[in-house]
Design a protein around this nucleic acid. Sequence first.
DNA 1: ACTTCTAGGTAAAACGATATATCTATATGC
DNA 2: GCATATAGATATATCGTTTTACCTAGAAGT
Lengths: 336, 336
Amino acid sequence: MSPKPTLDTVAKAAGVSKATVSQVMRGTGRISDATRKKVLAAAKALHYVPDERAASMRSGRLREVGMIIHHISNPFNAEVISGVSDRLEQEGYLVSVLDSQDDPERQKRNLEAFIKSSRAGLLWVPAAETTDDTEQLLKTHRIPTVTFLRSSGIEGLDHVGIKNRDATRKATRYLADLGHRHIAFFGGDANADVRNERIEGYTSILDEMHLGPPIVWEAPDDKMSGMDAMFALTAAHPEVTALVCNGDVVALGACHALQRQGKVPGRDVSVIGFDNIQDAYVSTPPLSTLAVHPYQLGQKLAQTLLARLEQPDAPASTTLVTAELISRESTGPAMA
Amino acid sequence: MSPKPTLDTVAKAAGVSKATVSQVMRGTGRISDATRKKVLAAAKALHYVPDERAASMRSGRLREVGMIIHHISNPFNAEVISGVSDRLEQEGYLVSVLDSQDDPERQKRNLEAFIKSSRAGLLWVPAAETTDDTEQLLKTHRIPTVTFLRSSGIEGLDHVGIKNRDATRKATRYLADLGHRHIAFFGGDANADVRNERIEGYTSILDEMHLGPPIVWEAPDDKMSGMDAMFALTAAHPEVTALVCNGDVVALGACHALQRQGKVPGRDVSVIGFDNIQDAYVSTPPLSTLAVHPYQLGQKLAQTLLARLEQPDAPASTTLVTAELISRESTGPAMA
DNA sequence: ACTTCTAGGTAAAACGATATATCTATATGC
DNA sequence: GCATATAGATATATCGTTTTACCTAGAAGT
């Protein structure tokens, strides 16, 4: 029944002033041991918890950062979140997550709510078709923002991403060294920047090793679609014996398709995924893939935001983390 | 360079008082059309956005609710979140999510941060080993809370759950009707309430149909562990020909184990999962499962919280949604 | 013409914290 | 012994809103 205790409540109970209580709670060190104990006792007894809203309003220090990501259910993202939270919690920040579901409308609503609620900064995976007015929103409100995985059209934002070009170069060269001569790039959405970078890496190796024209095949990023797209690809290009994929999920879909055709991934057709999700190594056969450590990426992300908050006017930074090629059983030498 | 615009900024620009601007922004309808237009124009020009913190402090109305869930990456949970958000956004609430990772320590930190930041209410999946002091925290601060999926030890909280007992009764009877005589319950953690309810349903059918003593087998909730546990189960109980599982993931793990043993799920051993995740119907063979519609569950959840916020002193409610049996190819008649 | 009502607007207090300036003893310097 | 530090506590202004009560004109009623 009693209303929420405030500084005043505690002050009265301890027989001191509000100012004193405030100083004790923040540990400024200007208060004597005797009164400090008194105040702490009173605070504990009343279950007093300071109201962050009031504190942040007056002090101008925000202690909460937001994340807006395209798919909260993606296991990779979940690991990123955990890396971010661990690092930012150390500095006393709370990290709360919004799911845009890769929907520009929803993302805009998220962003508007985000702005109203005054957070210190934003970690953001821009939705696929982010509209200009959404970008405008971020620009005019000058929110400290770090994008990750995907970059935005906005100048001057920090970014943490993956060395995509590098990664697919590694994967493609690996397949070529195994003797494959007809390698396709499989999966993803045509107008995605990230995918284009990956295709660039793939194509560059093809060029360097004179392996003919690139074969690039689209497929939405789920298993089912991956399977269907793979049926289409094998019909159109029966000569293909190796796949560099835009993601593990779609790669697993492709493997399924192969199996339904009586082929064995890793023997008849080699498949390399991207992401190293858990399913990649419990599938049959285990999937070769390009692995990025999402937890570390999350920590890097947190680090970048902290630096930005520290120095709001520093020039924008771009950090790219390398992907490592993990060879499992879905890849093997080309058959003679 | 200009600092963030406030009510005052807009008021000066429009040549009216703060109070007037405030009324226009909230649409109280007491302001004439002429001045309203003036104010709105000024607000737009300055990109003014009200500060939720100040507003909520004064009005006492909170417009943000939090969710704390055990695994943000679970696709089922992601769907729940989306149902919750859609419903609560209609009422002008922002929904932000924290991931406890099923870790009691992290959950407690989440909760403490949550309390400081003053949100209207909490949607909560209690972590597996939730400690007493965590529960105490919620109780003493009287936060409007709805638990879901798992229930807490706290009296008087609303709850939205699944008719677990009912679901596994359906599944077990279905298998028995297919002629199976040795049905095991597979997966989950020994001391989980939800699992116990499911085991109860399973056992009750065994009793009614005189199918011998229950066989209950533990397994952590990932594919790999499911596979390993299944090897152990077949070794210990070769007579088992059907499985009621505690989740799809673990069920898929079991199917894998069967395949590695040269057996065919649905022919040699029938398997029923729980959750109906996307993988369940793109696996080979597609997995029979108990389906709960997570989006609808989310909406129900939002509805329950809204009702609680409306009537803080209403008696606690419990809502259970039914799970539907979806029969796919991982189940079939017992072999003669 | 005089009261009474109402519409449209505003001043000022409040929400719960922090920050700044100020106050009062007591300790210190010479 | 007198000025001056200094430590410990406090009064008060402030952050950006909402709310309440009040004010002022012109409209309406008689």
